[in-house]
C-alpha cells in the first residue's frame, strides 16, 4: 500500500488538489482510495464519490483530528486494502496548527492557499514545516509579485520542502505533484506494506487537561492534568 498524507488549513484546496491528483493517477490504472479526517462534519465524501474513488470519513468529534488520525491509520490501511486499492491518500483538516499527520518516510504534503495571508506559512506549524512538498493553491487570483512573496515566506518556514503551484480549479500543476510524489514513494519506501515501526515526524503535543475530556465547568477546582497559567504584565 502506498500511503500519502495530505494536510492543510480548512478551505486551502486539499480536496480540489486530491481530486485532480486522483484523475491524473486513475489514467494510468492505479487503484486509489481516500480517507478524510475532520472534526465535526465533512462534505468532501461526495466530491470523492463523484470521482468514483472509495472514500471513508473519520470524524474526530472533540478530539484533535491529527490525534484521531494516528489512532486509526492502521485500520484505515486495512480498509483501503479491503477496497482493492494500492494507494491510500489521507486528507486531514489541519485545525490546531500544533499537530501534523506526517509520518517518517511516508510522502507528506501540505496544501496552503496564496490568499491566506502573509503570516500563514509561519503559523501553519509542523504540518507545513515537516512536509516534503508544499502545494500553493489559488495563485490564479493574486498578482505574480504576491505569489513570489508568498513562496518566499513558505521557503523561510519550510526550507527543505519543494514548493509547487497548483490551480485547484483547473488542475494545472498537478502533473508535477504526481511526479514528485512518485519519486518520494520510490525513494522512501519501495515496499510500504508494513505499518509497523512507523513513526510520526513530529511529536503531537499532549492535550490532556480536563477540558480535553469534556469538562465544561470553569474554575480552579475543575482543572486537572496539564494546565498552564498565562502571564499578565
Amino acid at each position: 500500500m502506498k500511503l500519502i498524507t495530505i494536510a492543510g488549513p480548512p478551505s486551502s484546496g486539499k480536496t480540489s488538489v486530491i481530486v485532480a491528483l486522483l484523475k491524473e493517477w486513475a489514467g494510468r490504472g492505479d487503484k486509489l482510495s481516500v480517507i478524510k479526517f475532520d472534526c465535526l462534519t465533512s462534505s468532501d465524501k461526495e466530491a470523492y464519490e463523484k470521482a468514483g474513488i472509495p472514500v471513508e470519513t473519520g470524524l474526530a468529534g472533540n478530539l484533535c483530528p491529527d490525534h484521531y488520525f494516528v489512532n486509526n491509520i492502521g485500520k484505515g490501511i486495512a480498509w483501503a486494502e479491503s477496497q482493492g486499492a494500492n494507494t491510500l491518500i489521507t486528507e486531514s483538516a489541519g485545525l490546531c496548527n500544533r499537530c501534523a499527520p506526517h509520518i517518517k518516510s511516508i510522502p507528506a504534503v501540505c496544501v496552503i492557499d496564496a490568499l491566506s495571508g502573509l503570516n500563514t506559512p509561519k503559523k501553519t506549524g509542523p504540518m507545513l514545516r515537516y512536509a516534503d512538498l508544499v502545494v500553493v493553491t489559488k495563485g490564479d487570483i493574486v498578482s505574480q509579485a504576491e505569489r513570489e512573496v508568498f513562496a518566499y515566506r513558505v521557503k523561510q518556514a519550510a526550507p527543505k520542502a519543494r514548493i509547487i503551484a497548483v490551480n485547484g480549479l483547473t488542475g494545472q500543476g498537478v502533473l508535477e505533484l504526481a511526479l514528485l510524489l512518485d519519486e518520494l514513494s520510490q525513494k522512501d519506501r519501495p515496499d510500504n506494506d508494513q505499518m509497523d515501526n512507523m513513526e510520526l515526524r513530529f511529536s503531537m503535543p499532549t492535550a490532556l487537561c480536563s477540558y480535553c475530556l469534556g469538562e465544561k465547568r470553569i474554575g480552579q477546582d475543575y482543572q486537572i492534568g496539564i494546565t498552564r497559567e498565562m502571564k499578565f504584565s
Binding site: 495571508g117 493574486v142 504576491e146 513570489e148 512573496v149 513562496a151 521557503k155 514548493i163 503551484a165
Partner: peptide, 30 residues
C-alpha cells in the same frame, strides 16, 4: 513549476492585490 526561478514575468489583465500591508512594505518584501 519552480516558484522561484521564473522564466516569465507577467503583468496580467485581472490583477488584484490581496495582501494586507502597505505598498512600501510589500515592495520591500518582494
Amino acid at each position: 513549476f519552480s516558484m522561484d526561478k521564473k522564466l516569465v514575468a507577467q503583468i496580467s489583465q485581472n490583477m488584484n492585490f490581496v495582501m494586507d500591508c502597505s505598498a512600501l512594505d510589500f515592495v520591500i518584501m518582494h
